[in-house]
Nucleic acid binder design. Structure first.
Lengths: 346, 346
DNA sequence: TGTCAACACGAAAACGTTTGCGTTGCCTTT
DNA sequence: AAAGGCAACGCAAACGTTTTCGTGTTGACA
């Protein structure tokens, strides 16, 4: 087990100074060709690689970016990570991930662990609990210490930083409009409670779409699911709620669900009630996850281009890191959504 | 934008030496109570946090572990990561992830990026290309340089290190036995080409189960899918193959698929051919992903306990890191599989 | 009054780099 | 022969810590 070789060891072995070795390896013309070759040969032989930590300390930058997300076992987030990793690697950066598990305190802890020199900047999506408590001091403090943050998807106006979001409102309008075009008269929405900003926006898009088409929005057609309970009952409760929705609104012929799971579950319940998809009820979901693609019938969805979001976030952050301290100019990039038509619509 | 405060700045401000500040903060009794309080108050005020990079350099350990996986947009791998992250954080470690994207060269590059001081050890699952080329020098070299590796799921005998695997053979035997118990007489398997070790093992388990039940294995019932092509056609090809399988073996009443997607696709094709599940054909898959749970009918699977694998891997690695250089004793932990019965079996 | 221990603190090395600048020795130039 | 120039290298600082080993100042004690 040979330890990693350092400049010092090479220097001692070759009887020159450390600086000479360093310069020789970087092809400085201060060093004679003789010594340069000698040093480089030796370095190659012993497979010398500069120690990253030492470099980080010297350069005051680590060339790694920190990601904090609420959950990794989630198609959307892992796709975002893939996007981030893609451009990060291309530009010579590493990524280190922290999971908040939707908890405020874990988010704070994780950020503190990373903010002390381990990384150059953050890319993150806010946890539900933080959203609920509306306590954003850890973000603003980090930023004020000179560490840039890029937020994606779950963002918040109170914090000034670069942001990458999908146009939830427009996306859901598109979805509902699609349902209307395909002949739906009575469209229900299955959404989340309002404190999740994306849920709120998507609901709003639904309402606006109805409004613009002169369809009256009915409270009974709006199902707001409380997704705070993560337990197994969650699904059962969800199914019951949806069943009630269908039964108290017999004329529903279109469903817009703000995520994949709700959509799939809606289809399941509909089928159980003897309704055919898409003949009797058409369904559109949000997020193009793996479920939508492989469900039967496959689900028409509003695609969020998760990987692209990740790529954009990384570009934004790295540009920020490598540009000379510009005048605190923050931008918000909007990723367009796209309807992917599959079998759950006519 | 105030830069992060350092020991040196505190020292200058309070007109004491750096060492005094350091000692005061660590509550050394060398320092008088007066100075201690003064320093600590100042540090708190300016929110002093020791610089991680400097600590890493000094201690020659980074307290972060590197993960290299073939793909992150994958339920199994992201669940493993969650497990790793869980115990890593609990024990004061961070995780930094690299994606090989199933490519040999990216695996090598990624490992080299991290091996130069950024991390203390690796947890990884080998890429398909590496498995195919059987070139493991980057693993052995890393290990011989004193950096421990824990491999999970996709492991290889040629490399000596800690390993965490699932009992693929036993797991698939269990699956096939379950099918037999439930009355299946003609069981087909949908598997991968043999170079993916887990595919090979699972096929072997299938054969052994049949053998032990005195059922003759038929080559025509074994479908080996070439999953090298990742393209969209993949699915089409798969469907065609499965359709052929069903049509040339009309009496198939049980399907064992080595992964979720194959199983779901098999169900889809079966239904298209007018077969009912589980009445006419029963299906069991491997891996309990999100598809299995939410498919209709939901899929009976062999659960691999991915999160537990991650936890075990992390425990193994960290123990290795924190124990005094023991005598190169490597262990292989086997995670038991478990059949999760759902609607695709009787 | 001289000695010694205890106390409170500072200097410096170390971790592994990079780099500006100083220092040799030798050759050229006038 | 003296001065200047250049090639080739070493010194030392810096990044931010921790820690060992001084060192100076007390006070107590003989």
């Amino acid at each position: 087990m040979k330890r990693k070789v350092t400049l010092k060891q090479i220097a001692r072995e070759l009887d020159v100074s450390i600086s000479t070795v360093s310069k020789a390896l970087r092809n400085s013309k201060e060093i004679s060709e003789d010594t340069r070759e000698k040093v480089q040969a030796f370095a190659k032989l012993y497979n010398y690689r500069p120690n990253n930590i030492a470099l980080s300390l010297k350069n005051r930058k680590t060339k790694t970016i920190g990601i904090i997300i609420p959950e990794i076992v989630h198609h959307f987030f892992s796709k975002v990570i893939r996007g981030i990793e893609l451009v990060a690697n291309k530009r010579g950066y590493n990524v280190i991930v922290g999971l908040s598990n939707e908890s405020f305190s874990k988010e704070v802890i994780n950020m503190e662990m990373l903010a002390n020199g381990s990384i150059d900047g953050f890319i993150l999506s806010i946890s539900k609990e933080t959203l609920l408590q509306q306590d954003y001091h850890h973000f603003t403090e980090t930023i004020s210490q000179g560490m840039p943050i890029v937020m994606f998807d779950r963002v918040v106006n109170e914090v000034l930083c670069d942001k990458v979001i999908v146009d939830d409102l427009k996306g859901s309008k598109k979805a509902v409009n699609t349902l209307i075009e395909k002949g739906c008269k009575t469209i229900a929405i299955i959404t989340t409670k309002d404190y999740v900003s994306v849920g709120k926006l998507r609901t709003q898009g639904y309402l606006e779409a109805l409004n613009e088409n002169d369809i009256k929005a009915l409270g009974s057609l709006i199902l707001k699911v409380d997704d705070k309970l993560v337990s197994e009952d969650h699904l059962d409760v969800l199914e019951k709620d949806i069943e009630t929705l269908f039964e108290s609104n017999k004329d529903i012929d279109g469903i817009f669900a703000v995520n994949e799971l709700y959509a799939i579950t809606a289809m399941k319940v509909a089928r159980k009630l003897g309704l055919n998809i898409p003949e009797d009820v058409q369904v559109i979901g949000f997020t193009d996850g793996v479920l939508s693609k492989h469900a039967t019938p496959s689900l028409t969805t509003v695609s969020q281009h998760a990987q692209q979001m990740g790529e954009q976030s990384a570009e934004l952050l790295i540009n920020n890191l490598e540009i000379e301290e510009d005048e605190d100019y923050y931008q918000t990039v909007v990723i367009e959504t796209e309807i992917i038509e599959r079998e759950s619509t006519k």
